[in-house]
Amino acid sequence: MSSSAESRERILSRLYNAQQYGRDAYVPQKKVWTIRNRPKEKNITEFMERMGAVRTEVYRTKGTEWVAELQKLVEERGQKTLLHAPSTPTGKVLAEKWKKKSPCKLVTWKDSIEEFKDDLFACDGAVTGCIGGIAESAAVILWPTEEEPRLMSIVPPLHVVVVEADKIYTSFQDAIKKLKWNTSMPTNALLISGPSKTADIELILQFGVHGPTDLVVFITE
């Protein structure tokens, strides 16, 4: 095997030589795709509509009333455990308002994935916050943190996301600009649009293949 460094040299030198053609070649002016920002209400309506179209349950709630809504929802579905991050604003509200008698118990992530793996895979659901939503393409934006690790949004069969109404952006472009992705990219950044799905059998859309089977979004104001 040639070493990685030698390969690097050879690949780059071939490419730099090819540039003799490349620089002569006509490169058209780069065009940019822009979408004009819309008012907040329009964004929320479109977000709800489009998220609904990708089989996401979206609820618009005031203050902390989403906790009660969520509690009703998980109890109806017979969920036993709900993973949350009590040190985040979302998790804090959840822990405070959660009825202790609920058959669905709140669980917290302990230690690193290596230790927590079995428990994680046994969780029925997880609640996370997010840093925003996108109306035009129907997505929530998650930048997982130490408090809300990446796997919270992919392993448990139910994923609940709480998004602030003010943080629903018109477009992906706008979200990138407002959140300054180019300078503050986290280790892992995610767009999530609906529950996990596949169409590998006769192109029939089926939900819940590896990740969550259900995605629930609460818009809070």
Partner: peptide
């Protein structure tokens, strides 16, 4: 590819697990 506006997941990975992170 599939006639979707967006896929379910768009996953941007910019490095391994950091010191205090608990997965990845």
């Amino acid at each position: 590819a599939t006639g979707q506006r967006i896929t379910t997941y768009f996953n941007m990975i910019s490095g391994p697990r950091k010191k205090d992170e608990r997965d990845g």
